[in-house]
Nucleic acid binder design. Sequence first.
DNA 1: ATCGGCCTCATACTAAAGTACCAATTTGTG
DNA 2: CACAAATTGGTACTTTAGTATGAGGCCGAT
Lengths: 153, 153
Amino acid sequence: MTVSKERQHIFIYAAALAALVLFLKWMEWKFLLANNSIEIYIGLIALFFTILGIWIAKQLIKPKVEIKVVEKEVLVYPSPEIDEAMIEKLELSAREYEILQLIAKGLSNDGIAKTVFLSVSTVKTHVSNLYFKLDVKSRTQAIEKAKQLKIIA
Amino acid sequence: MTVSKERQHIFIYAAALAALVLFLKWMEWKFLLANNSIEIYIGLIALFFTILGIWIAKQLIKPKVEIKVVEKEVLVYPSPEIDEAMIEKLELSAREYEILQLIAKGLSNDGIAKTVFLSVSTVKTHVSNLYFKLDVKSRTQAIEKAKQLKIIA
DNA sequence: ATCGGCCTCATACTAAAGTACCAATTTGTG
DNA sequence: CACAAATTGGTACTTTAGTATGAGGCCGAT
């Protein structure tokens, strides 16, 4: 794009020069016919070339490029992305993870037992194993850690 | 600053014009003495005024400022805004709210007692009152509800 | 100064959570 | 099939959580 624009400038400039040559020849011819006004002639040439110079400059002056950095605020919703990889790394079994989620919902062992149709004993076993794998010692700690590890919402 | 610069430009331009007049007179005088090279004369004038025009343009034309807008994405995390109004609505006292936060961190009653230098009895009292105000019956439920009500992070 | 709310602490009790250890069944994989 | 891991369930026990109740001190407002 820049190259084509440069070429266009060169072309326009060449055309202007050609017109100039013709103009000069015409002026010169006119001057020979009536050379009683050399000052006017010189003045016209001066005016013309001044304007030409200005025009050329206008075409050639490179626009200053001002880089304006606009900070665009992008709302990032704390993705309730569940870190599945972490769950596997912790070697949490399906039941353990399921029960972890129920714990986070505030259910008691008894409540968990009733929702997943298990005995409280079984729930306790899972919960204990869960604590061991999460390296915690209570439900509340488990909830905190699970949230930090992004394995629950 | 802009005004003084403008005046400077005008002054320089005037000086250039004065020099020009002198130059023209000198050229004219030389031309009258030897008018055998009118093309060279015209050519010199053309060249001079072209350069002059370019120079004027350079001095006067305000460079086009091309504003390049670069969007920089700034991640904005929707602040886990704490609903202070809700805290007041629930009529949670300072201690109760403080202890609620410690509960959410996974601390036991004993842990809380040691961190805020209270007896476990006092902590239990606060916790019980807290449960009543939050309408829950256990720590885990309190944590869940507190998060739903956005009164803790 | 009296009253209510808050903070503090204690005792006594019940309920729930958590640990330890064991054991039977299921399930998926080599 | 055989084996490991997961799932289920139990008993016994300790610890923690939670409730109920009472009580004293502090402080601001009426």
